[in-house]
Amino acid sequence: TGEEYIAVGDFTAQQVGDLTFKKGEILLAIEKKPDGWWIAKDAKGNEGLVPRTYLEPYS
């Protein structure tokens, strides 16, 4: 299990392996990579890379 984050903006996948999401979606951070791209999972179970700058902790 990971930590929940809320998307603060829309993001469209730029390449294969990225995860597209919309502002307000809750994402589960699976792995926090030091380069600023995290592996996350959305509510539908889709998994991919997301930019850290689009996420804020969800409580």
Results as ranks from 00 to 15, higher is better:
T1W: 14
T1L: 13
T1A: 13
T1C: 15
T1S: 13
T1Q: 13
G2C: 14
G2I: 13
G2H: 14
G2P: 13
G2F: 15
G2K: 12
E3P: 08
E3I: 11
E3V: 11
E3A: 10
E4T: 14
E4K: 14
E4D: 06
E4N: 09
E4Y: 15
E4I: 15
E4W: 15
E4V: 15
E4Q: 14
Y5F: 10
Y5C: 04
Y5N: 00
Y5T: 00
Y5G: 00
Y5H: 04
Y5M: 06
I6Q: 06
I6A: 04
I6N: 02
I6W: 06
I6C: 07
I6Y: 07
I6S: 03
I6K: 07
A7F: 02
A7R: 01
A7K: 01
A7Q: 01
A7C: 09
A7D: 00
V8H: 05
V8E: 02
V8T: 11
V8L: 13
V8Y: 04
V8K: 10
V8A: 06
V8D: 01
V8M: 11
V8R: 09
V8C: 12
G9R: 15
G9T: 14
G9W: 15
G9M: 15
G9Q: 15
G9C: 15
D10W: 05
D10E: 06
D10V: 03
D10S: 10
D10A: 07
D10G: 06
D10T: 07
D10I: 03
D10F: 05
F11V: 05
F11A: 01
F11Y: 14
F11I: 04
T12V: 11
T12N: 11
T12M: 11
T12R: 09
T12Y: 13
T12K: 10
T12F: 12
T12W: 11
A13D: 02
A13T: 04
A13R: 08
A13V: 03
A13K: 05
Q14F: 10
Q14D: 08
Q14L: 13
Q14G: 09
Q15R: 15
Q15V: 09
Q15T: 11
Q15H: 13
Q15F: 10
Q15E: 10
Q15W: 08
V16F: 11
V16R: 11
V16Y: 11
V16M: 11
V16Q: 12
G17N: 06
G17K: 04
G17F: 06
G17T: 07
G17A: 05
G17S: 06
D18V: 15
D18I: 14
D18Y: 15
D18T: 14
L19W: 01
L19S: 01
L19K: 01
L19A: 01
L19G: 01
L19I: 04
L19N: 00
T20R: 04
T20A: 10
T20V: 04
T20Q: 07
T20K: 04
T20W: 04
T20D: 07
F21A: 02
F21W: 02
F21R: 00
K22N: 08
K22M: 09
K22D: 03
K22L: 08
K22C: 09
K22H: 09
K22Y: 10
K22R: 12
K23L: 07
K23Q: 08
K23W: 06
K23G: 04
K23F: 07
K23M: 08
K23D: 03
G24K: 02
G24P: 01
G24A: 03
G24M: 03
G24V: 01
E25Y: 06
E25L: 03
E25I: 04
E25S: 09
E25F: 05
E25R: 02
E25H: 07
E25W: 10
I26M: 07
I26A: 03
I26R: 07
I26Y: 05
I26N: 02
I26T: 05
I26S: 03
L27W: 01
L27N: 00
L27V: 05
L27F: 07
L27Y: 02
L27G: 00
L27R: 00
L27P: 00
L28H: 09
L28D: 02
L28P: 00
L28S: 07
L28Q: 09
L28A: 05
L28K: 09
L28G: 03
L28M: 11
A29N: 02
A29L: 15
A29Q: 03
A29G: 04
A29W: 03
A29S: 06
I30W: 05
I30M: 09
E31P: 03
E31D: 12
E31V: 14
E31R: 11
E31H: 12
E31Y: 12
E31A: 11
E31T: 11
E31W: 12
E31I: 12
K32A: 06
K32G: 04
K32Y: 07
K32T: 06
K32E: 07
K32Q: 08
K32H: 05
K33G: 12
K33A: 09
K33T: 09
K33N: 12
K33C: 14
P34Y: 10
P34L: 11
P34W: 09
D35Q: 05
D35A: 05
D35C: 11
D35W: 05
D35M: 05
D35E: 07
D35L: 05
G36K: 04
G36M: 06
G36D: 06
G36R: 03
G36T: 04
G36H: 05
G36S: 04
W37L: 06
W37I: 07
W37V: 06
W37S: 05
W37K: 07
W37D: 03
W37C: 08
W37Q: 06
W37R: 08
W38L: 07
W38E: 00
W38P: 00
W38F: 07
W38S: 00
I39R: 12
I39D: 00
I39Q: 06
I39N: 04
I39T: 07
A40G: 04
A40Y: 04
A40I: 07
A40D: 00
A40L: 10
A40W: 04
K41H: 06
K41L: 09
K41F: 05
K41Y: 05
K41P: 00
K41Q: 10
K41A: 08
K41T: 07
K41M: 11
D42I: 02
D42T: 05
D42E: 01
D42A: 03
D42N: 14
D42P: 01
D42H: 02
D42Y: 01
D42M: 02
A43M: 13
A43I: 10
A43S: 14
A43K: 12
A43W: 10
A43P: 08
A43V: 10
A43G: 09
K44V: 09
K44M: 13
K44F: 14
K44S: 12
K44L: 13
K44E: 11
K44H: 13
K44R: 13
K44Y: 14
K44N: 13
K44Q: 13
K44T: 10
K44I: 09
G45S: 04
G45D: 05
G45N: 06
N46A: 08
N46G: 07
N46S: 07
N46V: 09
N46W: 05
N46L: 08
N46F: 08
E47S: 11
E47H: 10
G48K: 00
G48S: 01
G48T: 01
L49R: 15
L49V: 09
L49E: 05
L49T: 13
L49G: 07
V50E: 01
V50N: 01
V50W: 01
V50G: 02
V50Y: 00
V50M: 02
P51N: 13
P51V: 03
P51Q: 09
P51W: 10
R52A: 15
R52M: 15
R52Q: 13
R52C: 15
R52S: 15
R52N: 12
R52L: 10
R52W: 13
R52D: 10
T53I: 14
T53C: 15
T53G: 13
T53E: 15
T53L: 11
T53H: 14
Y54S: 08
Y54P: 01
Y54D: 04
Y54W: 09
L55Y: 02
L55S: 00
E56L: 12
E56F: 09
E56T: 10
E56S: 10
E56M: 14
E56I: 14
E56Y: 10
E56D: 07
E56Q: 12
P57I: 09
P57L: 11
P57A: 09
P57R: 09
P57M: 07
Y58I: 10
Y58E: 04
Y58T: 08
Y58R: 08
Y58N: 07
Y58K: 08
S59W: 12
S59E: 11
S59C: 13
S59I: 14
S59V: 13
S59Q: 12
S59M: 12
